[in-house]
Design a binder for these strands. Structure first.
Lengths: 226, 226
DNA sequence: TTGCTAAGGTGTATCCACTACACTATGTTC
DNA sequence: GAACATAGTGTAGTGGATACACCTTAGCAA
């Protein structure tokens, strides 16, 4: 390999993309955000939002940009998931995709398709349509990561808006682990983490006693427990 | 974006490489395998083994191939770590590097530099030389991953040869967590995992009672605990 | 052959974190 | 003011992690 010429003259380069698996909790169920492809290949099929890396942008910047362009969402929690690069995963050319995991807080303004996405919609994770490329595999990996991080990090708090009740927090965990949790034990655990604090406010909602509101002590941060 | 022409005609592609952080335990200390670069940039500097992805090979295949070419090691435990793609991390051109974590069992035959590596050597992790590119950052990430997986997986068993004693296993853990561990508690824990079985053989080593040998029940597999 | 050396191998009591479990409090609505 | 619905609270029990000390068995040297 010559040291004068860039490597690109001696070997063909693959394309690099990012794909983003955005989860949110809506209507008491875990949902995933998909876009309908406006261009071939897989035109008309549902897929993860994402797209090609610009030659002078960082990977995470690319993921955030593609997400904003195709779905209108921005400012979400975003973490790198895994890189998928099987030969033949894209019929056009060799494509290496750096997958990201993103979580949207409840109450997020609804999504709007943009750029080369013909549509953008939330799907219940247990009722996904057929997916383009190897996106089903990416989603499975993302879900494993999400559930795996539940009990040693505060990642699940990213599903909540700035202030929330302990009942809402518990509901998030119940949906994610798909099981009922004892209320007293959960509250004891959540408060012992020392990651949340009462705002002093309460929220009235329905014909019952109002709930105390809490916020993260360290907003914009996923911390690791133990 | 046209659907007829490949994307490579409309946008420049970055180069894609793999880099491999290979750990091993030698002389009662955690070591890392580095190569001395035989070509610019950073010619003569120490760096992780790794190199450019061939256009028709899978990512993990590339990592295994580069590792074998540059250091002579093959058949190691290999897992994808993280992808590094900061603009400017390589002075030649835009390079996206998919980093891998590898573990070499004790007693591994010694390494030999090959391909465009001028040298290949094990370094104590607490005495690394200056490193090329962003490899110091990759190594820090790899070490965090390794230590983080210790107590919910059997990843540390990959540091041992096919058969080993409980004392050797304990020593691996002590080096990795950099602390002494109670012998009785450790043995209770290790046997309760149901991941190892006695071979029935013993090993004489020094002027003391011989130790029972064990092997993994499920060789070639890192399992997740709890 | 004896005894010194050095690692191999074993059990029990304590502590702490997680679990199971039921009732009162306080708003709204009719 | 009664019915409703979620908010909010404490204690006893259990099981897994921790702390801790002595005997066993081979090599080696005197």
């Amino acid at each position: 390999m010559s040291q004068a010429k860039p490597h690109c003259y001696t070997h063909p380069h693959p394309a690099v993309t990012t794909d983003i698996a955005v989860f949110a909790i809506r209507d008491d169920a875990l949902h995933l955000l998909l876009i309908r492809r406006g261009n071939p290949p897989f035109e008309g099929a549902w897929a993860l939002p994402g797209g090609f890396l610009d030659i002078d942008e960082d990977l995470e910047t690319c993921a955030a940009r593609e997400l904003a362009e195709e779905t209108g969402l921005s400012g979400l929690y975003l973490e790198q998931l895994c890189t998928f690069g099987a030969v033949g995963r894209d019929p056009r050319e060799r494509v290496i995709s750096v997958a990201y995991l993103a979580l949207a807080p409840a109450g997020e303004r609804s999504v709007q398709a943009g750029d080369d996405a013909a549509d953008a919609r939330w799907f219940r994770l247990d009722a996904l349509p057929a997916l383009a490329f190897d996106h089903a595999e990416i989603i499975a990996t993302a879900q494993r990561r999400l559930v795996g991080k539940l009990d040693y990090s505060t990642i699940a708090f990213q599903f909540l808006p700035e202030t929330f009740t302990l009942g809402e927090l518990q509901r998030v965990y119940e949906i994610l682990v798909d099981a009922e949790i004892d209320k007293r034990n959960f509250r004891k655990w959540a408060l012992a983490l020392e990651q949340i604090e009462a705002t002093g406010e309460t929220r009235r909602h329905g014909n019952h006693r109002p709930a105390r509101l809490y916020r993260l002590t360290d907003r914009e941060r996923v911390t690791y427990l133990k």
